[in-house]
């Protein structure tokens, strides 16, 4: 029936963005809950975090989920890239004067920019921890890889000369994520057609809350770790 087909249609690309985006939101919740364990100090905190890290890297179910997450990120990025290219092509000559701020939020107009910042951050972040955990040389404590110490050291200005810069980078990335989520969360529901006069305001509120609480939670960790160690 459809000449362009489900996968090629502009709407289908939007569904893909929405599904992957919402899935990544779920991932963020899990990731944040795990990371919050870094607030627990002392040896108990250390071993609990390391056990969590071990679980997250070895449990088969989690492995499946993590591959799904990688795939989602990849798809979200590629799809976003294609959409952005299409959208640029749809307006070859730009306006001399355009006042988008009068009719739309800054975040909604800059999702690609925000997404790119997040992509850079994800690469940096995975290089800092995920790579070390999986392939790097890492000390062992109680038979577990000691990611806890690695993490603390990363944000310790005495050990890592770039700790302050990294903390700032992480916080900046989380602010970007906040804006990205602020538009993206409720936008995903709209893209999937989940719109209802009664529930849409709830979704919008939830989206705003999500886009503040989750990034703030993430950002609090490097700040906390940096402050207690300096």
């Amino acid at each position: 029936m459809s000449k362009t087909g489900i996968l090629k249609s502009s709407l289908s690309k939007k569904y893909a963005m929405a599904f992957t985006g919402l899935f990544l939101c779920l991932f963020l919740v899990g990731h944040l809950l795990g990371n919050l364990q870094l607030f627990a100090s002392g040896p108990e905190g250390q071993s609990a975090f390391n056990e969590y890290a071990e679980f997250m890297t070895t449990n088969p179910l989690i492995k499946v989920m993590s591959y799904l997450t990688y795939a989602s990120i990849l798809f979200h990025v590629l799809d976003g890239f294609v959409l952005t290219l299409n959208n640029r092509k749809a307006r070859p000559v730009k306006y001399v004067v355009e006042k988008g701020k009068l009719n739309s939020s800054w975040a909604s107009r800059n999702m690609a920019l925000l997404g790119t910042i997040l992509l850079v951050f994800i690469v940096t972040h995975m290089n800092n921890f995920w790579y070390v955990m999986h392939f790097g040389e890492i000390p062992m404590v109680d038979g577990l890889k000691d990611l806890h110490t690695i993490t603390l050291a990363f944000f310790n200005p005495q050990i890592n000369s770039l700790a302050a810069v990294m903390t700032l980078l992480y916080v900046f990335a989380m602010i970007s994520m906040g804006f990205h989520l602020n538009h993206g969360f409720q936008s995903a529901f709209q893209s999937l057609g989940l719109n209802h006069p009664k529930y849409t305001p709830v979704i919008k509120f939830a989206g705003t809350a999500f886009s503040v609480i989750v990034p703030a939670g993430f950002a609090s960790l490097p700040i906390y770790l940096f402050l207690i160690q300096s």
Binding site: M1, S2, K3, T4, K8, S9, S10, L11, K13, K14, L83, N86, N87, K89, A90, R91, G100, L102, N103, S104, S105, S108, R109, M111, H183, Q186, S187, Q190, S191
Partner: peptide, 26 residues
């Protein structure tokens, strides 16, 4: 059938994708 055909034509005409900025409604 209507929605499939109209969206197809919309894509063929070279319009961009909706990113839910909401500017159109305003």
């Amino acid at each position: 059938e209507r929605v499939l055909r109209m969206v197809d034509q919309m894509d063929i005409e070279g319009f961009g994708n909706c990113t839910n900025t909401g500017a159109c409604e305003v």
